[in-house]
Design a protein around this nucleic acid. Structure first.
Length: 674
DNA sequence: GTAGGGTTAG
C-alpha cells in the first residue's frame, strides 16, 4: 500500500506536516514603536497613548478592567490587548490585568515589555512578574525572578512565598530554605510551600518534620502532605498522619484528602483500605451534628471508590455503589461503563450506554474501544460513524481496533481519512500504523511512517520498539539495528526482545546471542519471549550445549517456567543434533500437552537423521493435532520411500486418501517416485 | 500575585 504524502499534503494541507515545535522566546518582542515617534520615553516603548488615571476609580475604568480580566480569563488575549491598546485611560489594575494574561500563557517577553513600560507598579505587579518567571516551564527563569525580587523595595509575604516556591520547583531546596529562614514574617502558605517543596524533591523526612513544626495548619497543609507522600510512595504514612490530624480547620474540603487517599489505595489495588476510608468519611448529618465534621462524601468520593473496584475487576461491587448513588455525573457513568468494557462485558456496557443521559466523547470512545477489543469491528465502526464529535482518541481507538483485528487495509484507509480530515496523529496513532506496516510486511509504508515519526513526536521508547519490530519483520535488519541503537535513553526489555528476535528470525544467530549477552550485562531481566528467540538462535546454529544451558537457566536463574514454545525449541536443538531419543524423552516429560511445533521439530529431526520409527510416532501425533494437514503424511511417505519400504509408504498414501487429505503444492515428490 | 485536593477513553 502506497500513500502519496505529497499529494495528500497538496490536496488537504494537513497542518501537522509543517508543524514545528514552538521556540521559546527569550528576547522582548519589538512592539510597534514606530507608531509613536515622539520623544516621550513611555511613548517610545509604544504604550502610552492612554492617559494614566492613577487617582480615583472612575466607573469607566472599573468596567474596562473587568472587561480585560474577563477576556484574559477566557484566554482571549488578542482581544484583551486590543481593548487595552484602545483604552483612553488606564490605571495600575489595567496594566496588571494585561500582564496577568501574558504571565498565564508563559509569554514572559510580552509581560516584561508591559512591566518595563508601566508608569507605576504596585506589589502585585512585581509579584505577578516573579510568579511568571518562576513558574515558566523549562525552569530556566528562576534567576530572572530572583533579580526582580532583589530589586523590589517593599516585599510582602507573597513575594517571599513565590520566590521560595520557584526554588522548590527547580529542586533548589537549599536556596528555598535560606529564604524561608530569612523572611520577616511567615504565614501558613510559607510553611505549606516548604512542606510540598521537600516532598516534590523526595525529601520525605524533612517534609514531615516541617509539617510537625508548623505553628498552624489548614486543610491545604494536610492535603499537600497527603498527596506528596503518596507521590513518594508513602501511602501508609500518609494515611496514618491524615487520620491522626483529622480536619485541621474544620472546613469541608478535607474530603479532598480522603479522596486522594482512596485513589492512592485504589490505584494500587488495595481495595480494603480504600473502602475503609470511604466508609470513614462523615456521611450526611449522622456524625456531624456537633458541627465539627460536617463534610460528606461527594460525587468524586463515590466515583473514586467505584474506580477502585473497577481497577480490580470487581464490577459487581462497583455496580452496587453505582446504583446507590443519588447523584451521578458523567464520570460516574463513564467509569462504570469502562469497568464493564475492561471485563469485556459489552452487553452490560451497552445497556448503561443506552441509559446514560448525556454520553460524551469519552463515553463513545470507551464503547468503540470495547467493541474493537472484543473483535466486533462492525459495531465499533458504526459507533465511530455515528458519534456526534470525534477527537484524536476516537480515531486512534478505531484504527487500533482494525489493527488488532488484523484488518490492516481498513486501518490504513482510516488513517488516510484521518489525515485528510486534518487530524494530527500522535504516538498512539503512529504506533498502531507501525503495527499495521509490520502486519502487512510493508516496508514502504513503514518507512513513510518512520519519517512521520521523526517529524511529529519526540523520541520515545515504545515507538522505537515498534520501529525495530517493523524493520525486522520487513527484513530490513540493518535499519532495525539503527533504530535499536537510537534508543540510547532507556532500552527496556521489549527493545532487547525486539532486536534479539529480529536477529534470530533472520538467521543471525551469532548476533542474537551476542546481544543477549550484552542485555544481561546491562542487567535487563530477560522474559520468556527473550528465551524463545535465544533458543531458536541456538537451534539455527546447532549450539546444543549452550541451548540446553539457556533452557535450564530460565527457571533456575529467572524463575520463568518454560512454555510449550521453549520445549519446541529445545526438541529442535537436541533433535537436530541427532539425539533423537533424548528429544523424545523431553517430549514425554513435558508438563503440558505437546503442540504441533514440538512434534514438528521432532519429525523434522527424524527426517534429517533418518529415524523412521520415531518419525512415525511424531507424524501420527501431528495427524491427530491437525487432521487436515498433509505435511506429516507427505514427510512420512517420503521417508518410507527413501528407505525403500514401499508397503509402508503405500499405507500412508492410502490413509491419506481415506482421510481425504489434499496434497499441497511443493510436495510433488509424493507422486514422483513410482 | 504565593501552598493543596480526587475520578473516565486510545
Amino acid at each position: 500500500m502506497r500513500i502519496c504524502w505529497r499529494r495528500l499534503c497538496i490536496l488537504h494541507r494537513p497542518t501537522f506536516l509543517s508543524w514545528r515545535r514552538p521556540q521559546r522566546r527569550l528576547n522582548p518582542l519589538p512592539l510597534a514603536t514606530r507608531h509613536f515617534p515622539t520623544g516621550d520615553p513611555r511613548r517610545a516603548r509604544g504604550f502610552a497613548s492612554a492617559r494614566e488615571c492613577t487617582g480615583s476609580r472612575t466607573p469607566d475604568l472599573f468596567a474596562l478592567n473587568k472587561q480585560i480580566s474577563h477576556l484574559v480569563r477566557a484566554g482571549r488575549l488578542g482581544e484583551a490587548r486590543a481593548v487595552f491598546d484602545a483604552a483612553e485611560c488606564r490605571n495600575t489594575v489595567t496594566w496588571n490585568a494585561m500582564i496577568t494574561g501574558y504571565v498565564r500563557r508563559g509569554a514572559m517577553a510580552r509581560a516584561r515589555e508591559l512591566f518595563d513600560g508601566m508608569p507605576e507598579r504596585d506589589v502585585t505587579t512585581w509579584n505577578l512578574m516573579i510568579s511568571g518567571y518562576v513558574s515558566c516551564r523549562g525552569s530556566g527563569f528562576v534567576e530572572e525572578g530572583r533579580e526582580l525580587f532583589e530589586r523590589m523595595l517593599e516585599r510582602d509575604c507573597i513575594s517571599w512565598n513565590t520566590m521560595i516556591s520557584g526554588y522548590a520547583k527547580v529542586g533548589r531546596m537549599d536556596e528555598a530554605l535560606w529564604l524561608f529562614q530569612r523572611m520577616p514574617e511567615r504565614n501558613v502558605v510559607s510553611w505549606n510551600t516548604m512542606v510540598t517543596g521537600f516532598l516534590r524533591n523526595g525529601d520525605v523526612e524533612r517534609a514531615v518534620g516541617f509539617f510537625k513544626e508548623m505553628p498552624e495548619r489548614d486543610s491545604a497543609s494536610l492535603s499537600g502532605l497527603v498527596s506528596g507522600l503518596i507521590r513518594n510512595d508513602k501511602l501508609d504514612e500518609a494515611a496514618r498522619i491524615f487520620l491522626e490530624h483529622g480536619n485541621p480547620d474544620g472546613r469541608e474540603d478535607t474530603v479532598g484528602a480522603y479522596n486522594t487517599l482512596i485513589a492512592g489505595y485504589g490505584q494500587r489495588g488495595r481495595i480494603e483500605e480504600a473502602r475503609y476510608l470511604f466508609d470513614l468519611i462523615p456521611f450526611g448529618n449522622d456524625r456531624g451534628e456537633g458541627g465539627a465534621q460536617k463534610f460528606v462524601r461527594n460525587v468524586v468520593s463515590w466515583n473514586t471508590m467505584i474506580m477502585s473496584y473497577v481497577k480490580v475487576g470487581n464490577t459487581v461491587a462497583a455496580r452496587e455503589l453505582f446504583d446507590q448513588m443519588t447523584e451521578r455525573d458523567t464520570f460516574s457513568w463513564n467509569t462504570m461503563i469502562s469497568g464493564y468494557v475492561h471485563m469485556s462485558n459489552m452487553e452490560e456496557a451497552s445497556k448503561l450506554f443506552q441509559d446514560m443521559p448525556n454520553p460524551d466523547t469519552f463515553t463513545w470512545n470507551t464503547m468503540i474501544s470495547g467493541y474493537a477489543e472484543t473483535g466486533n469491528l462492525e459495531f465499533a465502526r458504526d459507533l465511530f460513524e455515528k458519534m456526534p464529535q470525534k477527537n484524536l482518541v476516537s480515531w486512534n481507538s478505531v484504527i487500533a481496533g482494525y489493527e488488532k483485528n488484523e484488518d490492516y487495509k481498513g486501518a490504513v484507509v482510516l488513517f488516510i481519512q484521518m489525515l485528510t480530515n486534518g487530524e494530527k496523529p500522535d504516538r498512539h496513532t503512529l504506533s498502531s500504523i507501525l503495527a499495521v506496516a509490520t502486519g502487512l510486511v510493508d516496508l514502504s509504508l513503514g518507512l513513510q511512517i518512520h519519517q512521520l515519526v521523526n517529524k511529529i513526536v519526540n523520541p520515545d521508547v515504545p515507538i522505537n520498539n515498534s520501529l525495530i519490530t517493523m524493520y525486522s519483520r520487513c527484513g530490513a535488519i540493518v535499519d532495525a539495528r539503527t533504530s535499536f541503537d537510537e534508543v540510547n535513553l532507556q532500552k527496556n526489555v521489549i527493545t532487547w526482545n525486539a532486536m534479539i528476535g529480529g536477529y534470530a528470525s533472520h538467521g543471525f544467530a551469532a548476533e542474537a546471542l551476542e546481544l543477549f549477552k550484552l542485555m544481561k550485562r546491562f542487567e535487563v531481566r530477560p522474559t520468556y519471549i527473550t528465551f524463545i528467540s535465544v533458543l531458536s538462535a541456538c537451534a539455527h546454529v546447532g549450539l546444543v550445549e549452550e541451548g540446553r544451558r539457556h533452557f535450564l537457566s530460565m527457571s533456575k536463574e529467572y524463575g520463568i517456567e518454560p512454555t510449550v514454545e521453549h520445549f519446541a525449541s529445545l526438541v529442535d536443538i537436541v533433535g537436530r543434533h541427532g539425539q533423537l531419543n533424548e528429544a523424545f524423552d523431553i517430549i514425554k516429560g513435558m508438563p503440558m500437552k505437546p503442540d504441533k511445533a514440538v512434534w514438528g521439530a521432532l519429525l523434522g529431526a527424524c527426517r534429517v537423521h533418518d529415524n523412521v520409527e520415531l518419525a512415525r510416532v511424531a507424524a501420527e501425533a501431528l495427524m491427530q493435532l491437525e487432521p487436515e494437514s498433509s505435511a506429516p503424511y507427505v514427510l512420512l511417505y517420503n521417508m518410507y520411500a527413501d528407505a525403500g519400504r514401499w508397503d509402508d509408504a503405500n499405507k500412508v498414501r492410502m490413509m491419506m486418501e481415506r482421510n481425504a487429505i489434499k496434497k499441497c503444492k511443493g510436495y510433488s515428490r509424493v507422486d514422483s517416485p513410482q
